[in-house]
Design a binder for these strands. Structure first.
Lengths: 361, 361
DNA sequence: CTGAAAGCGCTTACAG
DNA sequence: CTGAAAGCGCTTACAG
């Protein structure tokens, strides 16, 4: 048995071999370059370049000699240098809120697949919902000369990107619109989705319906609140102040908001949850309630069908959002796009039980 | 109201402004360089470099003139060129299986945070569990001259990375060990976790226990099966062939495997699910069964506590895996590490009900 | 305090 | 079919 670190519980298995054969010093200094390959093969630099890039005009014999030198030296073309000369980096950037959020995983993967189909790599970073960090990340990606940028905005002012866009960086915003600049944007229909979801609750007899959403400065949160208000107004219901709560989506805040709505002489009989994080906490709160409370959540959630009752949601397709945005980005890079557009993807109401509960009173 | 595309349901809102002010042609040709800034400010190239990089030895007046030129031209340093000269790219690569898998989201985010703390960007890509694609991706990242590579192996032969590692690319493997090369690896204790989970089922009276896992060539799947067998053997139970099933983790295959184990004259009374994807499908199958069947799953799952019964799991900390690996990577880059190590992180059994159900017979 | 020259590792445009 | 020269946009090493 190997020793276990008391503090971390890790088991450490030291390896007997050494790392001594790893070359020290500069990362590059130790790597063979085309020049080295050329010298060893006894040919010119350009001939090596031809072989490496599979260009025509090299005799089989020369090619063989070059290839042998490549293999012997363990040469791998430095794409960084290539990129500097060629102009395009064949990489795109994705700035999102948090890679650990299940909403962004499929989105990021979809962007990656489109990039891959176009031979590009994806660099991504999380803004953590911090506008300064979003800007810092986006500009760092521009400094690396990504060909394009997919941005899920944390901030509401993207004028800092204007010089980059003018310089040719393709840019598409997803999930939320760009602020104060004119750019392509791909959104889900937050307003319509929320309106449908709340109308569904109203159709099942509810009138005192609560809304818990993200911070009001976030576009989707504002739009979903607007959808909620529209549905209520359509039904002739006057929304009371105590029924709506917007703010950060950490469990403590959401729990407090939900518990407040559910207390007092006239508690809400249903809740509309503004996104997946809100929904998860509200489910926990409702599980503790004596009487059943109806719930519709924005965003679908894994295992939603296995809850009791099943969770009714307004689903958006995050992978489709990502794919649509990335395809649009590459069309910008192809030069086939002219005017910035706003593309809105429809949402889908999925009924599973929680949204069809009647009012408890 | 705007027109709606019949096929996709998208609402298209054409923008009235034009993209005509976007400069055409090469990505780089249009961007100002230090040379342009120097010309405009009437100084030498090196002075611009000093100002851009905040180096000392520039009079306030000169600095102001340079800064004005920078702002006027919208100059942003080309880090691609900088990197070529400096040697380090300040970027690391992460090759994982699927960014859309909830297990890898937190892992990737954790790697990103460590990279950020070291001033590095993260390029990541999904291998889709395809060894060829893993290799292609890893080598593409090396060609971009990432300083280091965190790899979640899809294949079992990583000798293709030997020249890169020799050339100085820091490399850490996570979740599964490297194949046929000697390298740092950070793992969860799959064997111990599975053994604990199965022992837990045995302690609750089960003897006919099924195991459904991923493809046997995947290290974690093999280790968890080994843990299952060890627990069974410890209890003196002879495992029947029909009780174990390894293969792809798509819902169809897992469903068939589960249903087979649960049919016949002597069905299993409990199932150990080899990972989160297996668990999700098994939960669905069990929900359809007439009699209760106990379940313990490897990997925790969101909302596991809200299922009926709550889901008992062997949890691993995917964020910690990522953080540990990334920290090790940067220690390699600091030059403070000598011998490759294998670090094993402990798992944790979380009991919530499903694993404590008694045998139905 | 300031800047001209050389070079990072490739590709481009050209000549032989 | 092959290769020498120039250049991508920076930094390094050096001189003034």
């Amino acid at each position: 048995m190997h020793p276990v670190d008391d503090r971390t519980g890790r088991r450490i298995v030291p390896d007997t071999s050494r790392r001594a054969d790893r070359l020290p010093g500069s990362r590059y200094g130790t790597r063979p370059t085309m020049k080295d390959v050329a010298a060893r093969a006894g040919v010119g630099l350009k001939t090596v370049s031809r072989v490496v890039n599979g260009e025509p005009g090299v005799t089989p014999d020369t090619e063989r000699r070059v290839q042998e030198a490549i293999d012997a030296l363990g040469f791998r073309r430095n794409d960084s240098a290539r990129v500097l000369r060629k102009g395009r980096t064949a990489s795109i950037g994705l700035v999102l809120e948090d890679l650990a959020d299940p909403f962004y995983g499929p989105l990021s993967r979809a962007v990656e697949e489109v990039a891959r189909a176009h031979g590009a790599l994806l660099i991504n970073g999380s803004s953590a919902e911090d506008p300064d960090r979003e800007q810092e990340l986006a500009l760092a990606l521009c400094a690396r000369r990504v060909d394009g940028l997919v941005v899920i905005p944390a901030g509401d002012d993207h004028r800092y990107l204007e010089p980059e866009i003018r310089a040719g960086v393709a840019t598409v915003f997803v999930d939320r619109p760009a602020g104060k600049i004119d750019a392509d944007v791909v959104l889900s229909d937050s307003y319509g989705g929320a309106r449908d979801g709340v109308a569904h609750l109203i159709a099942h007899g509810h009138r005192r319906i609560g809304f818990i959403g993200d911070m009001p400065r976030i576009h989707t949160a504002a739009e979903r609140l607007r959808g909620y208000r529209a549905a209520m107004e359509d039904a002739g219901i006057v929304v009371e102040g105590a029924w709506t709560s917007l703010g950060v989506t950490d469990p403590e805040r959401v729990r407090r908001a939900a518990e407040e709505m559910l207390s007092g002489p006239e508690p809400v009989t249903a809740i509309f949850a503004g996104n997946n994080r809100v929904t998860v906490t509200v489910i926990r709160v409702l599980a503790e309630q004596a009487r059943p409370v109806a719930l519709v959540g924005f965003d679908d959630i894994e295992l939603a069908d296995l809850l009791h009752p099943g969770l009714t949601v307004v689903a958006q397709d995050s992978a489709l959002l990502g794919r649509t945005a990335a395809e649009r980005l590459f069309r910008q890079l192809d030069g086939t796009l002219l005017a910035p557009e706003r593309i809105e993807l429809p949402t889908r109401l999925i009924t599973r039980g929680s949204g069809e509960l009647p009012p408890a009173d």
